[in-house]
Structures are given as C-alpha cells and as structure tokens.
Simulated scan of single mutants.
Amino acid sequence: MTHEFVFEDTVRIYDTDAQGIAHYASYYRFFTNTIEKYMKDKAGIPYPNVNDQLWFVMVETHAVYKRPVRLGDELTIMISPQVVSKKVIRFDLKILIKGNVTTEGYVTQVAIDPKVWRSVEIPEDILKRIAEV
C-alpha cells in the first residue's frame, strides 16, 4: 500500500551556493525533514531512533534534479512510504514548486539494533503505522 504525505519547506541561505541555488546536499535535508515529520506526526513513531533496540539508518539514496530550487523558494515535498520487507522501508519523494516537479528521489532505510549494528525486523505494529497512516 502506498499513500502520500505533504510537507512544506523553504530554501534557506545555508542551503544555497553563492548564486542562491540549492546545493545538491540540501535536497537530502529536504528529504530527511519530510521523513522525520511523516514518521513523528503521521505514524507516531520517534525517528530515527525509535527506542534502545530499534533505529532506522539510511542504506541508499537517489535524486534526480529536473530544475534548480533557489533561495526563498517555497517547496512542497510529497512522500510515499513503502514497506519493502520486514526490515526495509523506502520513502519515494518529490519536490515541487507551484505544482511543478523539480526533484524526484528516494531514501531506503533499514531497521537495526544499535547495540550490535545489525538489521532487525520492524515490529508489526510499527510496520502498520508506517504503511496504513
């Protein structure tokens, strides 16, 4: 099951280069802020550290930049979380300005036990909250 969640953000001075265009690393700030807001506000899950036995860590990211975003641009970030397996969540993301897609990408995260730094299964109640919000 997939669904979308929308987050609004603004391109800040620290996101940009001398020409006022967002640096590529800033897009991952936009992605991460959106994931964090989704997990906390919609799924009701502390993020990225759920508890002492469960953390979410990034294992893969990807972005395609279709047009630049600039200082002061008001961004709409759309996120569609997907449960890939009992250990893996993928967040598909789109960044838009006034309805026009500027960037598309995804972030894949694995659940780990931070004490041993090994992947673990995400508890069923947490999987349901991520996928059925």
Rank of each mutant, 00 (worst) to 15 (best):
K42V: 11
N51L: 00
E36S: 06
Y27A: 02
P46E: 09
V50S: 00
T34K: 02
N51A: 08
I45A: 00
Y28E: 11
I35V: 13
A25Q: 15
P48K: 12
A43L: 11
R29A: 14
D41V: 01
N33R: 09
D52Y: 11
I45T: 02
V50P: 00
F30K: 05
D52A: 14
Y47S: 04
I45K: 04
Y28S: 14
Y28M: 15
Y47G: 01
P46D: 13
Y28W: 14
Y28T: 13
Y47D: 03
I35G: 01
E36N: 12
T34F: 00
N33G: 09
V50T: 07
T34Y: 04
F30S: 05
K40Y: 10
F31H: 11
A25W: 13
L54F: 11
N51G: 06
T32I: 08
N51D: 15
Q53W: 15
S26H: 14
N33F: 03
Y27F: 15
D52P: 06
D52V: 11
Q53V: 13
K40P: 00
A43K: 08
P48Q: 13
A43Q: 08
A43P: 10
T32N: 13
T34A: 12
F31P: 05
R29T: 14
I45W: 01
G44A: 09
E36W: 06
Y47A: 03
M39P: 02
D41N: 12
F30D: 06
M39A: 06
P48T: 08
K40N: 10
A43F: 09
Y27L: 12
N33I: 05
A25I: 15
E36M: 06
T32A: 12
D41I: 02
E36I: 03
P48Y: 11
E36D: 12
Y47K: 02
F31E: 05
L54I: 14
Y38N: 02
P48R: 08
E36G: 01
P46W: 03
Y27I: 10
L54E: 04
N49T: 08
A43E: 04
D52G: 09
D52M: 10
R29I: 15
M39L: 08
P48N: 12
K42H: 09
K42C: 07
P48V: 08
